[in-house]
Write a protein that binds this DNA or RNA. Structure first.
Lengths: 203, 203, 203, 203
DNA sequence: GACTAAACGAGACGGTACGTCCTGTCTTGAG
DNA sequence: CTCAAGACAGGACGTACCGTCTCGTTTAGTC
């Protein structure tokens, strides 16, 4: 569902159709949630035959993953941002990123769509792999890059594993979102970053 | 779905039926996952009419929550453990708890059942509330109680919010589980605890 | 469902309950038809337990038969009329009876209730027997009595079978009702009687 | 349920499926009666999805009507007989037709199927209309045609309405069948015809 | 007056069927 | 070869009733 190979002959895949389907899928999952999303509904709303969806996506999860990817990639003018901010102040930079995330969660459409995708990912190991490779992975790479620079600057414990560092900084807020538990505010985010970084600081 | 008020007359609810349904629901979600769980399947396997399930649980999510609760409550002899270990060594105590969690995740049945419940919780706000009150809440209370004692003993920053502390210690491992990302090993758990506590320590 | 033997001891059957159930059953079948009639609905509307209905009637058909019987019996002041009119003018007398029948069919409640009963009777041989014995039979006896007097007075072919005579006079209108085919008017009824009697007259 | 308009595109209705469903429906109603007929049972026995039945028939009644029609139409090699017998002897001709009807009633399958249809027709006014137009109507037309020739030949009262004539001849036997009352024998049929014709004869 | 037994309301229960929705596949004609 | 349309077998949904089964209460009789 990631890279479709080019067919040699016959009518080619219509990119506009692909875009319509993904936009419709996003809209449906945003409105009705993952459980309420149906291939038939997407096909009907997109004015597309069911087969056209089944031809290119193996299941709901793959479709929603692509739909969310298409939307997040389209956010920046030229796709995803190439780099996290680096002002030299690590705490401020990470706080800014986390605050941005919190603000994204505040958009009901994005919230519901991402909840749908996450629900699918939890149960479907194969989809989880795709999710990590195509959505979470690139973002995590950016985070690690920023943290590596901090580590090289001596702001972080040189022995700490960067994946652990990412988890410590970002997981608490993510979990509050999934479980709708703690407060999901900019201030809450900043407090998390402060303590997480204290735990990762050079001893 | 928790406390049903007593009806004045008529035949009473059969507790054995309730237990059978919950046990069957757990088995089904453990075997087929949340998406593969069907009220019809549970009814058929439990030898019960569908209406008997719909009479007492409004949807799949509520049923699975009760099924998981019934199972975890039944784990200890007298229900849930009243208190987290307190040897005086905070890091060791929390590590023990997190390692136990990691080991629970290793049980495929428990893993799939909990994944099912979590998937439902992510999408259903009402269920999320019940989940927090009945499953997550009591456990979090225990954790906070242990941390409060440490805080009073001067082992933790006296200004830190205990909910934040819980999140910082436990969220990273939880997220690794949902996203099947980082390693879910006892050693990984211990490393998380070490750095999280360093971030929460008295300055 | 007809004659219940007296039990030696214990609480007796409440006749008011019986009446309420039958009245409710009639109302329900009049409103919703036989297919829409439900023991549960009757029980609920009558404010009665389902078991109380099942205790005394084996099925919907028996209940509806009793309900219709109760209603038709209650029509006359002292129950069913003991005799058909006998003015000496056979054609006029039979026309009067048939016109009365046509007018009964015009009452929507009675129409629907009787349709319900008839639908049940067509499929249920046992109920058909009870229907003949308790509803159709007595009425047919009255008709035959009137025709016998006419036959003895030489107004009818002495060789004609009286059951055949009843069928010839009354079946055409009955069939128009069941099939909603020909016109169900007093004039139509009178025309049927005229030709039927011509076919039964002494040669 | 009679004439489906042609759709512009998409897969066409499979006529073999239609035939299988109708044959199965006839078999089921013949075996279990109308009350015992279930869309689910028909679907299962026919190896067909329920939706395929609901797509083309709005309810049990319409299905059974089509099933009976398909069967009776398929009786003759080229469908229904185009004309009633006409030997010049009206009484003999009508007797032959009625005797044939009585013999059809003797076939248990046909009897139960037709009882099912009739039960549905009694309660459902819309179905009754379809029944008259598609089953009863054509047959009645044939009967009227035969009677009209007799009327023109001076064998019948020139003033008598032909619909009344049909009712007088055929309703008595039909009613005996529905109510399982009088005898349903060839001799009984002949006696009915004799007296009915006497009542319709030229004065 | 206490005891016994059935009638009665209420409603849980194992089932069956309803009519609808969706799945994933297949077929048809148009492009 | 793609695509929109839509038929198809299958299966689950959540609801409505079925007829049976407790329950606790009420009402007669019998002792």
């Amino acid at each position: 569902m990631a890279t479709e190979t080019q067919r040699s002959t016959g009518r080619r895949r219509n990119p506009a159709t692909r875009a319509t389907i993904l936009a419709t899928a996003f809209a449906v999952v945003a409105e009705l949630g993952y459980a309420g999303l149906t291939i038939e509904k997407v096909a009907a709303r997109a004015g597309v035959g069911k087969q056209t969806i089944y031809r290119w996506w193996p299941n709901k999860g793959a479709l929603v993953l692509d739909a969310v990817l298409e939307r997040t990639a389209g956010a920046g003018s030229d796709g995803a941002p190439a780099e996290l901010p680096d002002t030299g102040d690590l705490e401020a930079d990470l706080s800014a990123v986390l605050v941005a995330t919190v603000e994204e969660f505040a958009d009901p459409d994005f919230d519901r769509a991402l909840r749908g995708l996450t629900a699918a990912v939890i149960e479907d190991a194969e989809l989880a792999l795709a999710y990590r490779e195509r959505l979470d992975g690139p973002m995590r790479e950016l985070k690690k890059r920023r943290l590596r620079r901090a580590q090289e600057a001596g702001q972080l414990d040189p022995d700490v594993d960067l994946d652990l560092a990412v988890d410590l900084v970002f997981a608490p807020i993510a979990q509050r979102w999934t479980e709708r538990s703690g407060d999901l505010t900019p201030d809450g985010a900043r407090t998390v970053v402060r303590h997480a970084l204290r735990g990762l600081a050079a001893p």
